Computed example of a mutant assay.
Amino acid sequence: MMKGKISVLLGVLISSILVFLTGCAPQNGPGGHGGPGGPGGRPPSPENEEIQARLGDTSILMGSVVVPVSVEACGTGAGFSRLVCLTDLLKSSASSEVLELLQLDYSVEKAQSWSNLPAGAFPSRPGVFLGELTSDQLGIVKAILQEAAGSAENEGFDEMVQTLNADDYIGTVSTDYKAGYSSYNSKIAFLGTPSSTGTWQLYYGGHHFAFSNTYTDGQLSGATPSFRGIEPFPSFEMNGRVNVPLLQERDAFAALLNSLSKTQKSAATLDGTYRDILAGPQADDAIPEEQEGLSVTELDESQVALLLAAVQTYVGDIDDADAKVYMDRYTAELADTVLGFSGTTDMDSEDDYVRIHGPSLWIEFSLQSNKSTNEKGNHPHSVWRDITSDYGGQL
């Protein structure tokens, strides 16, 4: 317990120093000690100047991107071999300049370089911007993401598209032109060479998104950290559709929390106020060792089903076969899993927060005030981590 408290205090001290040096709020902060940051105030640097020169402000319209006929060479059967074939196809179509940004050596340090911040505020995010690719290359990227991600409505690939649409929306209302609010500015990279041997990661993300599937010797060895955020929330119209990403996560948690009895709610209530998630970007050691909250053994059968439905909204972001492996593991660990929350049970107010903490599983959902749209309201940050297989267990 003491170790966890020391880690939190050190995190607060480091965040305070960063605020003093850069004029920015930290990217994330533990409950009652900080909050999310905006993109302004970064000091000039060669890296940031290079990113600023590459930023775009147009929509890639990922939802309507056409998958090229060339992907037929990789077959139609879902699986790892098709995924590798698609990555090879994308690389073979790339110029030397694009390939230099797309194909990188693997390192845990690179894999950890993800953020909730937009491209202009986090220049160290690796990869090539989606907007720097040709239309055919974007179609191959679409096929890659569809292969690796879940196919359910509002989950997996569909959630990716809606989050890209959110950045396009923010780009229409934001006054911070250097932030890079546009679907153009999300990135994709291969950390390590995609192959049936060795370790490599499919790195995809940008503002409010991190998808980090790690593969080792032809098998998925880690699907986390998996970060999602969305603004505006809970819904908005953009790019020809109504977008509701993370609404299903919020509703699943609200259904679970509102099912609790008075006694169960008391046991599940966490101390303090949580203004953001704990285990966000650059906070890989923030998960407390000690569990806090209501044991899942105190839930009845219907409540356990509601909890698993909430977990499924995260695990379902990866392909079905791999998602089943994770769900089976988390179900087997339910007796050692706890539920905790702070704020209201409806999960619709600022500082509402909920987490699920098991031997392997860590999920957080946090509501905070809007930062990028200048509109009244709240928006969520959320993360799924697997304590045993973050970054493919490479730590």
Rank of each mutant, 00 (worst) to 15 (best):
K5V: 06
L13V: 04
T22K: 09
G23C: 10
N28I: 13
N28S: 13
H33D: 00
H33L: 14
P36H: 02
G37E: 14
P39K: 06
G40T: 06
S45I: 08
S45P: 12
E47C: 03
N48C: 03
E49S: 14
L55S: 03
T58P: 07
M62C: 02
G63L: 04
V66W: 01
P68E: 05
C74M: 14
C74K: 12
G79Y: 12
F80Q: 08
D88T: 12
K91I: 07
K91H: 02
S92H: 00
A94H: 05
A94C: 15
A94S: 15
E97Y: 02
E97M: 03
V98T: 12
L99T: 00
E100L: 03
E100K: 03
L101E: 14
L102P: 09
L102E: 06
D105P: 15
E109N: 01
K110Q: 13
G120D: 05
A121K: 13
S124R: 10
R125W: 09
P126Y: 02
E132L: 05
T134V: 04
T134P: 06
G139W: 02
I144E: 05
E147M: 02
E147L: 06
A149S: 15
E155N: 10
D158T: 10
E159T: 07
E159Y: 09
M160F: 15
M160R: 04
Q162G: 08
A166H: 04
A166R: 10
Y169F: 15
V173T: 04
N185E: 03
N185V: 11
S186Y: 15
F190A: 09
T193A: 15
P194E: 11
S195C: 13
T197P: 05
G198D: 14
L202N: 10
F209N: 09
S212K: 10
T216H: 05
G218P: 14
L220D: 00
S221F: 09
S226K: 06
F227E: 06
G229I: 02
E231I: 13
P232S: 04
S235N: 11
M238Q: 15
N239K: 01
G240L: 10
N243W: 08
V244Y: 02
Q248E: 14
E249S: 12
A255G: 00
A255H: 01
L257H: 04
L257W: 01
S259F: 09
Q264G: 08
K265F: 04
S266N: 08
A268S: 11
T269S: 04
T273S: 10
Y274M: 08
L278S: 11
P281T: 05
A283R: 12
D285T: 14
A286W: 00
I287G: 06
P288A: 09
L299Y: 14
A310N: 05
Q312S: 05
Y314C: 01
D317Q: 13
D317C: 11
D319M: 01
D320G: 04
D320F: 07
A323E: 07
K324W: 02
Y326E: 11
A332N: 05
E333R: 13
L334W: 07
V338K: 10
L339H: 00
G340V: 01
F341G: 02
S342C: 00
G343R: 01
S349W: 00
S349K: 09
D351T: 09
D351I: 00
I356N: 06
P359F: 00
W362I: 10
I363H: 08
L367E: 10
S369V: 14
S372L: 07
G377Y: 03
H381Q: 11
H381M: 11
W384D: 03
W384P: 01
T388F: 07
Q394R: 12
